[in-house]
Design a binder for these strands. Structure first.
Lengths: 191, 191
DNA sequence: CCTACCGATCGGTAGG
DNA sequence: CCTACCGATCGGTAGG
């Protein structure tokens, strides 16, 4: 069979694709219908509103990043090992879920106040995983202790959250090499 | 006098503000008119189209970053000094022109193909300034030479291009401290 | 999931 | 910069 009815998760997945590519406000419900081979009005049997779709995509993103952080913190190993696990996990989440990640990173600000506040909270919890590992490393001598874990976390996450903007799978840099370069840069710097 | 007629640059400035805050597609010409105290239709005596406004804001951004890079490369000094100048210049451009920078970074992808291609070219030229300094530094022994200047440039620019998302003037970190932390992190890393 | 709509809003124009 | 519009498109609904 070539055609089947779409499920709600098909609709959410397609929404992630279009939101990532053209932005939330640049995507109409008719665009989304076309992507799925049906009319815009037919989408309302799957979702309550357009916002509803954005909420679903962004919550998927939050869940993925959170799950990755939890797994990485569960690792026993040095602070460097756990930092590397966080980096590697983040890279995997982004590259295995490009549309969701892009929507999570760029379109969450289009959410209404209530949902946006929730996302900010979830991002802060995720960032806290990085802060904790950096603090641990500063405490046990793995990392220098004159560096502010909060600021350093932001710098690291800035690098990680930009990967979707430039990395091309199949290009000169393999995923493993990317993780390696990131870890090297973060831990040793240019000097 | 409290009220004067708006100039074209007033309109472009207001457009930058709204595009930065609500996105290009999230801003209507009527929104923009309201911001300036006139009707949406009245804007067309200043601009040809909504796209025209986005082009102007984004080109302003490109010019600012380019000017900063040119000034920094003109510095004579070690590779570290010039890298620090590039970082400091970038921070100044972003923090002194938040709306333009945000629009340049987040909304340029909404441009039509022709203008988007131009912006990509300009960004690449700007990135080339970073690559050159990193290459110089790898050549004269200032920086390690097992690091790829292209990848490192991307990492550094990723940190710089995220500053608008989290930095709050008047907060715990002064602008000078921000530049200091960035330079330290980039050159020495965590280790 | 479609037919057949709804009121609101969109970017933009003619003519002053 | 306003008045007075235009056709197109928007998110969404009723009823099947």
């Amino acid at each position: 069979m070539v055609t089947t009815r779409n499920s709600r998760s098909d609709v959410v997945a397609a929404a992630g694709r279009l939101f990532a590519e053209k932005g939330y406000h640049g995507t109409s419900m008719r665009d989304l219908g076309r992507e799925l081979g049906l009319l815009g009005s037919s989408l309302y049997s799957h979702v309550d509103s357009k916002q509803d779709l954005l909420v679903s995509v962004v919550e998927d993103g939050a869940r993925l990043f959170q799950a990755s952080a939890t797994a990485s913190l569960g690792t026993d190993g040095s602070a460097s090992d756990r930092l590397r696990a966080l980096i590697s996990g983040h890279v995997d989440v982004v590259l295995d879920n490009l549309d969701v990640s892009r929507t999570f990173l760029n379109e969450a600000r289009m959410l209404d106040d209530r949902h946006r506040a929730k996302v900010i909270e979830e991002r802060d919890r995720y960032e806290a995983a990085f802060r904790r590992v950096l603090s641990d490393g500063a405490g046990d001598g793995s990392f220098r202790d004159d560096i502010d874990p909060k600021t350093a976390s932001i710098f690291i996450l800035s690098m990680l959250n930009a990967i979707d903007r430039w990395y091309r799978p199949g290009g000169a840099l393999s995923r493993e090499q990317l993780v390696e370069e990131l870890s090297l840069f973060v831990i040793d710097g240019l000097g």
